[in-house]
């Protein structure tokens, strides 16, 4: 038993590929497989309301992961995510004739191009100054959409029709979950690749990265593009899921909400992004009758995370996992 326990607890990574693997061993494989199957199958037996919340969580997870790559891994604070989210949503709404998947892809690509432009100030600005510059982009996007009926559909807003036979809440959920899994696998690959290491290098010491010959400007823009691609895809998916768009859906509160999701979920963690997204969506549903208290709940959650668990819910999850792996030893 002791040897089995040792095998389970003292599992050292022996080469770099080992570190790359998403699923490290057999128990992890079983846990992941069961979780994914449960996520696909279980919602078939729950109410549409629950499916609606789950779909929101899944879509939001993609956007939060995008923002986490930018903030958590590259260290570039951006409050412009709602702008990319909106770009994705409106591009999908206007390009749905191409088909759902091409429209989602186009939404992501357009958001990435906009992200590259918005990322230019990051070459000169840092920290709170960059945050304010990107906040300006969010506000500008909101104003642009609100004052351009050709984009927003005017006072009536923009209705999005269903295409490609994906109509029922469960079908939409399955589509969103499939995309979410793909994006999480991709996100995991990015952060574990050389590109991901360079992002972390820029975050930790820009001077050292530059003196090692890293083209910091290029990688900062790349990080903005990847992040906005993720957010744009999520925005497009969200637009299709909701079926209706109006400018007030893209106000600055959304950016702050996404930022809260990162802090609560775990800055610089792929899995933490999903936990953070789940937290902010579920809390909003729990306090649906007391909407005024939602910002207070988030504020308290962020303060608690900052004091007790800087790695957010993901940090807690790791501690919990270690506790059970080492049980009954500490």
């Amino acid at each position: 038993m002791i040897s089995a326990l040792k095998k389970r607890t003292v599992r050292l990574k022996i080469d770099y590929l080992d570190d790359w693997r998403i699923i490290q061993d057999r128990p992890a494989f079983i846990f992941t497989a069961v979780s994914v199957l449960t996520l696909f199958i279980l919602p078939a037996f729950v109410s549409d309301y629950i499916i609606h919340i789950l779909t929101q969580v899944v879509i939001y997870s993609i956007a939060v992961l995008g923002q986490n790559i930018l903030i958590g891994y590259t260290g570039l604070i951006s409050f412009g995510q709602v702008g990319f989210w909106g770009v994705g949503a409106y591009v999908l709404a206007h390009s749905l004739k191409l088909g759902l998947i091409p429209a989602i892809f186009l939404a992501g690509v357009t958001a990435a191009v906009v992200g590259a432009i918005v990322g230019v100030p990051s070459l000169r600005l840092k920290g709170p100054y960059l945050a304010i510059a990107t906040l300006g982009f969010s506000v500008a996007f909101f104003q642009l959409v609100q004052n351009t009926p050709a984009i927003s559909g005017g006072r009536m807003g923009l209705f999005i029709e269903r295409v490609w036979g994906i109509d029922s809440p469960y079908e939409l959920y399955c589509l969103s979950l499939s995309l979410c899994i793909l994006f999480y696998l991709w996100g995991y690959r990015i952060v574990k690749s050389n590109t991901g290491r360079i992002f972390v290098a820029i975050r930790d010491s820009e001077v050292a990265a530059e003196s090692l010959g890293v083209d910091v400007s290029r990688y900062k823009i790349l990080s903005f593009m990847i992040s906005s691609f993720f957010t744009g895809v999520a925005g497009g998916l969200y637009a299709y899921f909701i079926g209706y768009l109006e400018p007030t859906m893209f106000n600055i509160t959304e950016s702050i909400l996404m930022f809260s999701a990162i802090v609560i979920g775990g800055i610089g963690s792929v899995f933490g992004s999903a936990l953070g997204a789940a937290f902010v969506i579920v809390i909003q549903q729990i306090f649906v009758a007391l909407k005024e208290f939602i910002p207070i709940v988030f504020a308290i959650a962020i303060v608690l995370v900052m004091i007790f668990e800087q790695h957010g819910l993901y940090g807690r999850w790791i501690k919990l996992k270690l506790y059970f792996m080492n049980f009954p030893f500490r």
Binding site: Y16, N194, A201, S205, V207, S211, G268
Partner: peptide, 18 residues
């Protein structure tokens, strides 16, 4: 640099790979 410019959250191997 004077602060050595290491990337503190990366392993030795990852630092070298960069």
């Amino acid at each position: 640099p004077d602060d050595r410019g290491l990337f503190p959250e990366l392993t030795v191997e990852e630092n070298l790979k960069l």
